[in-house]
Every structure is written in structure tokens, then in C-alpha cells.
Amino acid sequence: MASQGTKRSYEQMETDGERQNATEIRASVGKMIGGIGRFYIQMCTELKLSDYEGRLIQNSLTIERMVLSAFDERRNKYLEEHPSAGKDPKKTGGPIYRRVNGKWMRELILYDKEEIRRIWRQANNGDDATAGLTHMMIWHSNLNDATYQRTRALVRTGMDPRMCSLMQGSTLPRRSGAAGAAVKGVGTMVMELVRMIKRGINDRNFWRGENGRKTRIAYERMCNILKGKFQTAAQKAMMDQVRESRNPGNAEFEDLTFLARSALILRGSVAHKSCLPACVYGPAVASGYDFEREGYSLVGIDPFRLLQNSQVYSLIRPNENPAHKSQLVWMACHSAAFEDLRVLSFIKGTKVLPRGKLSTRGVQIASNENMETMESSTLELRSRYWAIRTRSGGNTNQQRASAGQISIQPTFSVQRNLPFDRTTIMAAFNGNTEGRTSDMRTEIIRMMESARPEDVSFQGRGVFELSDEKAASPIVPSFDMSNEGSYFFGDNAEEYDN
């Protein structure tokens, strides 16, 4: 783990906690998980779902989305002020799938948001429990990260689609708070800032007046979040320049895209947490497990152990491969979309394939898809080993990566060399080191050039047997250095459309 220093740990961010010791953190995270579980059980009762239907990941996603929508204050306010045809701002819903006479049927349900809020609060001892809501947002974000390569979004903001390893959390809503900021990748933060800068260039009043003052505060806050992700002084200094700019424009845009590229080699610290679907927490609570009393951590053995003992089902389209669908969801559960496939294969105990080789589309089923041909199958979400999630980018030494994705962002704290394609990355730096950030740029390029592919990161860190909950005997895996390590390699994943 990167030293926490003055930073709060993510469990504290996750639970809005002030400084807590490890036991208190485990208890408050457990409380959050228990609340999600209780809410899910109650919703299944309301909807009269069978046990099997309640364990269907598509039903879980609909129920999670309903509660997130019920608590989305800004959108609710907007919907009330701008009524649109056929949208009731006070209601929320989605597809629920039921097994009827041996076939899967889709039923569109509609609930009062007020009623959903009441059920959620009741499951969370009367609190709004925003930490639990954020947790579900991060699960949705991790699922998107594993399912889609955001080529269009990258290109629109002047970045290269091969930089997708920097895009963790790119679909997280803005209201996801400190826990959300911690899991956002460098590219995601750059993209958010670039969008602001572009608006400022096109709209003279963007930075002016009372609204402009708020915009400015948001801009500086985002700059500080991004600065905190960088691990070298030169990158941090460049972020200070971007933040202090009187009138952010093209120079800042250039600096930010430069920094994003540099992060492929001088990786930023991005938190990883295993956020599971509500249909995993519900049955665990129903079986009598007391998360608050037992304590829970999002970055240790607990999620692995929970998945070892969970039964989750998914709808499967006619030509999809259930094992591939399982891999997709497994990666999402562990926030591992940008991790090295060699490491993932070792931990999972079966070969993890790149996205383009998977015969599976996303987990969600569109409303126009034919239910007649839908089957369902068990998702295999178990693992051979477990490993500690990392909050750091690993040290800054790398190795060759593949054509589709030119770097990785480690999820697990496991000893290995970190793949990246130096030639491709360095070719993108057209040696432009003039301007006010020239000395920093020169320094950053120097550090990137001296990074050695064969150097090892996370020295001495290994994986653990599932029986080793105290992480007492690390097993340090050895990897084939020459092997392909990137998930979005030469990829044809669908595009994420909101």
C-alpha cells in the first residue's frame, strides 16, 4: 500500500469516517454492505422474486439502478423543472426478469421514488447511507470498465484509444464523492478537466460571474484530485501550473494530454476495490451473516471469500459463452479491467482472455432483445487465490505491452514486471518541450526514458491461498515475461453508450 500519510484510507472515504482504527473501519464497511443486503432482500420480497430470480444479476442491476435514481437529487430536480413526455419524475423502474413456464419473461416495473427511498433508509437504520449508494455506483463503473473500451470518449477529448488503461471510473457520476474520486484513473480526471476547458473556450461566460466562481472551485478541486494521483514531483508541479492558470485554454489542454500520456509509464495511484452486485450481499445477509459484527474490507480476502460461497446467475444470449460472461463479471467484481492478464489468470486459476476474444456482450439486456431465446446460467466467480488490492500504480518500471492497449494499471499487489510499449508511448511525445512547463516536461520525458521494462514492481508481494486469511504465506508467482498482458488488445469491444 502506498503510505497513507495525511490521506484517509478508502474504507474511511467509503464510510465518510473520520480517523478510525482498522477494526472500526471493518465494522463501518460491514455496516454499509449489510445495509445493501437488507435493502436487496426487501426489494425481492416487494417484487415477489423467487430465490433464483433474486440471484439473477440482471435483476440486481435494475434494483441497484432504481435506488441510485431515487437518490439522484440533481436529476430529480431537473426532471421536475423540465417535464418530458412519458417520463414521470417521481417514478423509477426498469426490467425485471421472471421464469414463467420454463421461459424467461421481461416485466417492466415502476415504483415511486419516495417508496424506494423509504425501503433503502429502513434497511440502513434510517440513514441515507450515501456510502452504500456510492458502492453500487463503483460496481456499475467497474462493470462498464470491463465491458467497454471507451474509444470515442478518448478520441473526443484528444487522447489515444490505446490509453484505455487510464480510464478507470470514466462512467462514474460526478456525485460519487471521495470514494469515487479515489477509483478514477488519470485519464478519467484528464477527460473531465478537458471537457471543462473546452467549454470555457467555447463559452465566454463559463468562468464568469457567480456560476463561474463555482465552476472555478470545481476545476481547482479536480486538479488537486489529479495532482494527488501522480507520484513524481515534476508531474505534480505541472498540475500546479494547470490549476493556477488564470484562464484555462489550449496550453492547459496540451499540458493535460501530455500528463495523461506520461501516466502510461509514470503511473498514478488509483484505488481498486472489489464492489459486488447487491444480489451477492442480499443472500449472505439472508443466511444470517452479520457483516457489521464480522467486519468487512473491500481490499482484502473478504470479497473473494464471499464470491467463493455465492451463487449468481445471468441471462445468456443464444451465441454467448457462459464462461466468457463469467470472466467479464469476475473482472468487474475485482475492479480488474486494466490489470495484467498474466496476473489475473494466476489468481483466477483459469486463463483470462483479452476482451476481443470473449464471445459475450454486456450483462444488460436491451429492451428490444428477444426473450424467447434467452437461457440462463451460473456465473463462475470463484478464484484459485486471493491478493491484496493496490492503491498505487506500482513502481515506475515497465515491460512490453500489446498493440491495442499500451500499458496497464495494476489492481493487485503482486510481484511482476509491468508491461508497456515504450516505443509507441515515446513516439507520441513530439519533443515539444517549450513553453512555461518546459523544464517539467524535459524531466518527465527523462524519467520515462530511463524506466526499464525488466524491473520488478511490488517486490516480494504474492497471492494467498483462500485458507490464508491473515495473509501469512505469500506465494510469489513467476510470469512468462514475453507473454501478452493487455485486456483490450487489438480490440473490438462495443462502445459504451450512456
Rank of each mutant, 00 (worst) to 15 (best):
Glu64Thr: 08
Met105Trp: 06
Glu73Gly: 09
Ser84Phe: 07
Gln398Gly: 03
Asn250Arg: 04
Tyr78Val: 06
Tyr40Met: 14
Ala428Arg: 01
Arg441Gly: 07
Arg26Gln: 05
Glu114Asn: 14
Met222Gly: 05
Leu307Thr: 11
Ile406Glu: 06
Arg19Ile: 01
Thr215Trp: 02
Asp88Gln: 05
Cys164Gly: 14
Asn224Pro: 00
Glu292Asn: 11
Glu494Val: 11
Ala181Met: 12
Arg174Ala: 03
Pro248Ala: 06
Gly462Trp: 04
Asp51Met: 13
Gly35Trp: 14
Leu61Gln: 01
Gly485Phe: 01
Gln364His: 11
Gln149Glu: 12
Leu353Val: 02
Ala27Tyr: 15
Ile347Leu: 13
Ser60Val: 06
Cys275Val: 15
Val363Arg: 00
Glu64Ile: 04
Glu339Lys: 13
Ala493Ser: 09
Met440Tyr: 15
Glu115Lys: 09
Gly212Asn: 07
Thr433Leu: 14
Val312Gln: 00
Gly485Leu: 00
Met163His: 02
Glu220Lys: 13
Ala2Trp: 03
Trp120Ala: 02
Lys198Ala: 03
Gln364Tyr: 11
Arg422Ile: 08
Val194Gly: 08
Met371Ala: 01
Gln459Ser: 14
Ser165Lys: 00
Lys470Ala: 07
Ser310Leu: 13
Ile406Val: 15
Arg382Gly: 12
Arg55Ile: 08
Val280Trp: 01
Trp104Thr: 01
Thr23Gly: 07
Asn370Asp: 12
Glu14Met: 06
Asn144Lys: 08
Trp207Thr: 07
Arg422Leu: 09
Arg156Tyr: 05
Gln4Tyr: 05
Ile96Lys: 10
Gly54Glu: 14
Ala85Asp: 05
Leu193His: 05
Pro303Ile: 02
Asp203Met: 04
Phe338Thr: 04
Cys44Gln: 11
Leu166Glu: 10
Glu14Pro: 01
Gly393Ala: 14
Lys184Trp: 12
Ala85Arg: 15
Arg261Thr: 05
Ser287Phe: 01
Glu244Val: 14
His82Ser: 14
Gly249Asn: 10
Thr151Cys: 03
Glu210Met: 05
Phe39Asp: 06
Trp120Asn: 07
Glu64Pro: 01
Asn498Lys: 10
Val186Leu: 14
Arg446Thr: 11
Ala278Lys: 04
Asp480Val: 15
Ile138Val: 13
Arg267Trp: 09
